[in-house]
Design a protein around this nucleic acid. Structure first.
Lengths: 189, 189
DNA sequence: GGTCGATAATTGGCCGACCAAGGTAAAGTC
DNA sequence: GACTTTACCTTGGTCGGCCAATTATCGACC
């Protein structure tokens, strides 16, 4: 323990090279915080349905159609395949979803919502509209539209770099440091 | 896409009780998507530093002071204690952070950034400003301000319900179904 | 003094999400 | 036909993040 200075604060461990003004994007911060709060709120609302945030999204895709190819699901939700696989395993086990092999293409999997899951539908949709309402309370239509517009713009910006966006070319060579931390740092414990 | 149906699509598994217009908040959707992309972008930029998204946040808190009580950290980042504990274990093991018992209060833990971590500081801060720039590319000052304003408003909205917000009393009785899914669905697998 | 409630951390379990490999089946090529 | 891509999913690992339950310690109260 450092024998130490009783104290907290001050005595910064490292000198700051950048001017304080340049430090940290307040907007990025805000975005992260809002997103987190939003997720928590969603979780709370979804709780009574037995779904976890993220799953309702998947279910919504399923409720619209009868059976969906998993690859289709992955594409339309734009998630990692492994994420979807695991999610589906859980939902399957919970009885909300059924998977079956596609006779047309034997490596593909067809996914469908079960009848059981239907009882959730209205609840989930209600939760979402409530969430939306709660999120945007106090914003008039103009503000909502503006927020949507700005968010869309930001999304487009971020998409250009992200690997997988609808309609983004990006053979983008740069910026991808190939390696980085392979076996490095905090691997185990 | 969408055209295919040999068997897919149509025949919705459950009838939709809500009018399509009411369904799903487009803004909530957008927010989630943007947040996710933002996180991915952050991850990419942070990658070369060996940090994972979320950790840089913690480190920034540490770089500003010499030693911080863990509880202080938890409060100021507004995260779950267990989250911070695990994060710190990893960062400790990676050598970026050092924990020591607080002599004043033997149940408390003091956390400090190591000298090693200092080499990351400028890199991390650079990454953040780059991220900010990338995120907001194409938005003029007015738009940025507006976005910040709207985000703040949304944050305030979401805070009222979330348990833990700075300066929020919120003994908010309503809407919090106390229990929910205890033994429910997808527990095991 | 001793008891009881609040506080500080930790552990364990769970989920979403990622990446990196791997295995299998379908297209495309020769 | 056989061979080589490519697409589709799984598994295994890691992280951030949450909740629930536990263990120490501190404080306050009696």
């Amino acid at each position: 323990m450092t024998s130490d200075p009783p104290a907290t604060s001050d005595t910064p461990a490292c000198p700051d090279r950048l001017p304080a003004a340049a430090r940290g994007g307040p907007l990025s911060h805000a975005l992260s915080r809002v997103a987190r709060l939003h997720r928590i709120a969603a979780g709370k609302l979804l709780r009574s349905t037995g779904l976890y945030p993220g799953q309702e999204f998947l279910m919504m895709h399923l409720w619209d159609a009868d059976a969906v190819r998993q690859s289709e699901l992955i594409k339309s939700m734009d998630l990692d395949p492994s994420t979807v696989t695991k999610m589906l395993q859980r939902l399957d086990h919970a009885g909300y979803v059924r998977r079956s092999a596609d006779p047309q293409d034997r490596r593909a999997v067809l996914v469908a919502a079960t009848a059981d899951s239907c009882t959730l539908r209205s609840e989930v949709e209600g939760a979402w509209t409530e969430l939306e309402e709660h999120t945007l309370a106090g914003l008039d239509d103009t503000e909502r539209a503006e927020l949507a517009r700005l968010l869309a713009k930001v999304e487009a910006n971020l998409c250009t770099e992200a690997a997988n966006c609808p309609d983004r070319p990006s053979a983008h060579p740069a910026s991808v440091h190939p390696a980085g931390r392979g076996g490095g740092g905090q691997g185990d414990q």
